[in-house]
Design a protein around this nucleic acid. Structure first.
Lengths: 139, 139
DNA sequence: CACCCTATGCGAATTTTTTGCATAAAAACA
DNA sequence: TGTTTTTATGCAAAAAATTCGCATAGGGTG
């Protein structure tokens, strides 16, 4: 079914609920069997590249109209070596070119389809860094 | 300047000298301050995806003009399940087709963009084998 | 300042990776 | 096929990296 590691549960909770602080998130996680501390949550959020917008956490994403360079952009990670980006139909290539040109250290390769981009990275540490750099490009 | 870890030194030595066995490589490394064992070298070569061609080791890469089928080809691995191949602009599709047609056992799927190909494999063992088979195709 | 929220240095515990040894497996060659 | 050379690997110890909680520092807001 679902990936039961803590990071993915956090992403799931953030997408499904309005979470305004790490303590609330802690409670949600506890309800799902992950009893951890605020410290760890802080570090997890960093790894996920989660950002706080209007007081609530959200997974790294650019909403429609938020950027002039792409119609929208949502990121998820698949394992430690892949970042999956979704755009609106027909926008992936343009976004892919922007990413390629930025020559971000840590990116091993990029492939864009119609509305999806795969970005290969070397490891989990790189993954978090690259994610942040990509979103910086479009912000 | 250069990365001074053992893996990059090995790649450098292999590119600069005709190395026909791991014992010779061991000697070269010793000369450069890396006193290690044949076991480790064997494992390093595997990590690098180094292949033996005509009795000599070479890094997984096809230089411009070296193959009639592709302009150039360089491989890296991203984790245990992905191989990332880079070609010159516009060449990835042609190379991808060649790989697909070869029906290499162990390849779970292939996607080609403009100058990049992602090859999904099941695990690290498969990864090394597949890498060798791919380069055999273009040699 | 007082309060709330988040980030981080540190050390302990855990997990992962690396390494050499011995040896098995494979390849090369007679 | 038998012998030799070359390469791969199971295993256990050592080394390195990661995870985690605690305590606390830092940031922001009123």
């Amino acid at each position: 079914m679902l990936d039961h590691n803590r990071l993915s549960i956090i992403a799931e909770v953030i997408r499904g609920h309005k979470i305004g602080n790490q303590h609330d998130l802690k409670e949600h996680l506890k309800g799902r069997g992950f009893d951890t501390t605020q410290s760890s949550i802080s570090r997890d959020l960093k790894k996920l590249g989660v950002v706080k917008v209007d007081g609530y956490y959200k997974t790294p994403s650019i909403a429609p109209g938020e950027s002039s360079k792409v119609d929208r952009l949502d990121a998820t990670t698949a394992g430690d070596n892949l970042i999956v980006l979704k755009t609106g139909p027909g926008n992936a290539n343009r976004a892919g070119v922007i990413i390629d040109r930025a020559n971000i250290i840590g990116i091993l390769g990029t492939i864009a389809g119609d509305d999806t981009i795969f970005v290969a990275v070397a490891n989990r540490q790189t993954q978090a860094k690259v994610l942040r750099k990509i979103f910086a490009l479009f912000d």
